[in-house]
Design a protein around this nucleic acid. Structure first.
Lengths: 230, 230
DNA sequence: CGTTGTTTTGAGTTTTCTCAACATGTGTGG
DNA sequence: CCACACATGTTGAGAAAACTCAAAACAACG
């Protein structure tokens, strides 16, 4: 029924096996530069000219859009190996901001796109990355459009666990506000929901930025719409 | 019923408007076949094997995901010329269902991807299509995550107007349920919101499946979060 | 230790949803 | 062409979910 196959596995596999985004190991490497930014700094802002596209070398960043009234929607978080900041326009459509200190590889946009078009291996990798990204944003549309607060939160926790490949001592690298802006909720609702999951014994959260999953099936049940807890 | 170009119009249409990515005019043309499906039939179902990817020749289809409890999220609507049903997996991630009778060009998936990788022109078009798609789904994340019912509806109406390139006698090709499933609302909320826009004199809606925009700035103001009407 | 920023909890309000009834349309067979 | 059945769309009333505003608890940091 539901259960969009998780692409996380694929991403991880690809990064580890150099099968995706080893965009640095080609002719592109020469024209790429490395930039370091501190936590909280922006790499680019919505509407900026977009002379580069980026690959995360270390650290985590968030990519978001801002509405007139200041509300934000965090489209995605990018970790090591991930490619971001590319669009068909020469203008950035989002704002990217470092969550932790980051090092990013910067590829000149035009050169990058040209290389992709003419190099079958690169093309394969890039198209794969784009499709993965698309798949991910589709999953998030389902979450935002059709899940309630508990479901959104539960599935987010499971995603973090999967990304960090563990079930205990999983880190929240982002703030509650970032989580809220990603899940389409308010910060208060995120807090309340986490507390609820804690009270029901599904997770452990000794401090705000760290949690462990106590009942994975339970969490999955909730994420996938089990009644009872909603 | 449907005012979309029918199959007979397609040749003329695609020739005149070069805007359709002409995936058919290459070596791929030979291996592509055309399939016709009736309104309401599915082209593929989530989880199916995905031997093909598709380009709409005539008609309109919707692509959606279903949750355990039957709730649906319509990710996108596809009209003439659009490419859909491609992912990096050999399995369909969504369900595609015809809204009107449709004719679709079917490309064998593997052959298609191979052609894209090795042909710079095709690669350029395909990458462009993917990036556009990605951009679109990002916009929808903002809508689903951070807009209220009136804003979602107003921006949807503006989108339809833009797609159909007119401000009067714009058709709803899809049902209220489809709209609701796309906007992440219930059918009742969509109705109420449309009625509200009508009462405020922003749109005209003589019959359920047809509307005209009376006050475009007003609608845009609402879509972009103007206070007053919310 | 105070200061500042982040997270959590509480109380009351607003929005959207649910359930139910009613209206409008469309299509079919008599 | 009418009558009936069935699908689709609209409206209303009350319930539920999430939001807002406000305050308190907790952490991090100089």
């Amino acid at each position: 029924m539901s259960a969009l196959p998780q692409l996380k596995d694929f991403d991880k596999f690809s990064v580890v096996h150099g099968f995706i985004p080893d965009f640095g190991a080609t002719s592109l490497a020469a024209s790429a530069s490395v930039k370091r930014i501190k936590a909280g700094e922006t790499l680019y802002v919505e509407g900026d000219d977009a002379p580069f596209c980026y690959q995360m070398i270390s650290g985590v960043a968030k990519e978001y859009n801002t509405l007139e009234d200041g509300r934000r929607q965090v489209a995605d978080f990018y970790g090591v190996g991930e490619l971001f900041g590319i669009s068909e326009l020469t203008e950035q459509l989002h704002t990217a901001e470092a969550i932790t200190d980051c090092a990013v590889r910067c590829f000149p946009r035009e050169k990058f796109l040209r290389a992709v078009e003419t190099n079958p291996v690169l093309s394969h990798r890039f198209v794969g990355a784009l499709m993965t990204r698309l798949h991910r944003s589709r999953e998030r549309m389902v979450m935002l459009g059709r899940m309630n607060a508990v479901q959104r939160t539960a599935s987010f926790l499971l995603r973090l666990a999967e990304e960090q490949e563990k079930a205990t001592d999983i880190q929240f690298l982002m703030s509650r506000q970032d989580i809220a802006d990603h899940l389409g909720l308010t910060i208060e609702t995120v807090c309340r929901t986490l507390t609820e999951l804690k009270k029901k014994g599904l997770i452990l959260m000794p401090v705000a930025r760290l949690f462990s999953i106590l009942d994975e099936e339970g969490l999955e049940g909730i994420a996938h719409g089990a009644a009872g807890l909603r």
